[in-house]
Computed example of a mutant assay.
Amino acid sequence: MDKFTFELERFSWRHRQKKDMFVAKTRMAALIDSVVVKECYPQSKTFLTGSTLTYLGFHKSDLDLCIFVDPTLGNNCLIQKDKAKYRPHLVKIQKRFVAKFGDIIESTKIITATVPILRIYLNPDYDDLEIDISLHNVPGILNTKLLHYYSSYDIRFSQLAIIVKAWMKTYEFNDSRNGFFNSYSISLMVLHYLQCGITPPILPNLLKLKGSFFDFNNLDNTFFQPIKINPLIEVNKQPISELLISFFDYYTKVDFNKYGISIEKGALFKLDTKHRDPIFIEEPFEKMNTARCMRRRNWKHYVIPMMENTLDSLLEGNNFELKINNHPIKITF
């Protein structure tokens, strides 16, 4: 193993979610469900979502929960316009949470986003953990399930996702509120690249091979149930160092004015003439653009040039420089 590969693997291992944090999050989720949610809604069901289960986040990433409180609310979706009916339920959970755990809470707020969220910030004694609670967000559950099984298929997916997210954070590109990417879009970029950007591919198309397992009517299947996938005919043995360099090369060469990314198809697809976003990453279940927050100016003048600069620097054998919590890290060749 070359030194650069070793250093990248060590970086991803050091900064990924550890088992003790996973256990702490699952215990916190169970406590919230029993002490807060079930007392408000006895027939409710709580799902863990996000990086806690996908293994694509950092050690202190958020705790994401999706709660089904009332069958009459239906299934939340990205094109839904009537978000007001969710707010009273989020307020009810917010008040109960504060009443039960007020001594460990730093602050709370309800965010009226595409999917309304109750955000709870715990105090430093609980590692400043951030908890995001959404309601009836079926696509969020299915996306978590899909990414969980992709992470389980090949460790290089989670390794590369953590490294690319760290690179995005270093240059403040992981910031949807300011017109850049959200973490989910970055994960899908890495997934697409490992399906379509290299030959032979590393990841198969799970939606094509096991579509019913990721169906809206199959939510209750455990995330840890093994699924049998025939191995790819050709095995890609490229190390994470080569994959990282090739990732930047791939994304600086694709014409995203003409093509979008489809995880469902496992391919690029031609965009229609009405497309206006600088990059289109199709959400696997609702088909919306997960990168719709990316502003064209940011993509053209910041993200792409920095990808090109990073690619040139790596090809010249220079250090790969990142920042974690504002602490500079140099990964050397």
Rank of each mutant, 00 (worst) to 15 (best):
A113L: 06
Y251L: 01
L146R: 12
M306I: 11
S134K: 07
I261P: 00
D64I: 01
N143V: 09
F256Q: 06
F216L: 14
P42N: 14
K92I: 02
L203S: 00
F248D: 09
V190G: 02
F248R: 13
N326Q: 11
F97D: 01
K300Q: 13
R156N: 10
I79P: 12
I117A: 00
D154E: 11
R276T: 13
K253E: 07
G266K: 07
T72G: 04
K208M: 13
L160N: 02
Y86V: 08
G140N: 04
E286S: 13
T26Y: 15
P328Q: 08
M294S: 05
F181E: 00
P204C: 06
D128L: 15
I227T: 11
R16H: 00
R156Q: 12
P239V: 08
S212F: 03
T108Q: 06
E321M: 15
E286W: 09
H192F: 00
T52G: 06
I186R: 00
K169P: 03
I324W: 00
F320Y: 02
L129Y: 10
C77T: 12
E172P: 02
F22R: 13
H15Q: 01
S151A: 15
N318Y: 15
E286I: 09
F181T: 01
E282V: 02
P124L: 07
I111P: 01
I329A: 03
Q94A: 15
C196K: 12
L146C: 11
S262K: 07
L207S: 09
K253W: 06
L207G: 07
L56F: 08
D220W: 05
K100C: 14
K323W: 08
Y171W: 04
P204H: 03
I32R: 05
S107T: 13
D128E: 11
D154I: 06
N325R: 07
K109P: 03
D128W: 15
I93K: 04
I131W: 05
L135K: 10
F47S: 02
N143L: 07
G50V: 00
E130G: 03
K3C: 12
D277F: 07
R96Q: 14
P204E: 03
S44L: 01
P124V: 10
K83T: 10
E9T: 13
E308P: 05
I104C: 06
K165W: 00
T199I: 15
Y149E: 07
D312M: 13
E308F: 11
K265A: 06
Q80D: 14
L244C: 07
C77P: 07
L53D: 00
K3V: 13
A166D: 07
I202N: 03
D277E: 10
G179D: 02
T144D: 01
Y259R: 08
S152W: 05
L314Y: 05
Y184S: 00
N217V: 08
V69I: 12
T72K: 08
C77F: 14
T332F: 12
F157M: 10
C293H: 09
A267L: 11
I186A: 00
I329H: 01
Y86A: 05
I229M: 04
S187T: 15
L142A: 06
H59Q: 05
H136I: 10
T49F: 09
Q195H: 15
K3N: 12
A267T: 11
N178E: 12
N319R: 08
F173N: 01
Q195E: 15
Q94I: 15
D249R: 10
H136L: 08
N326G: 04
P284G: 04
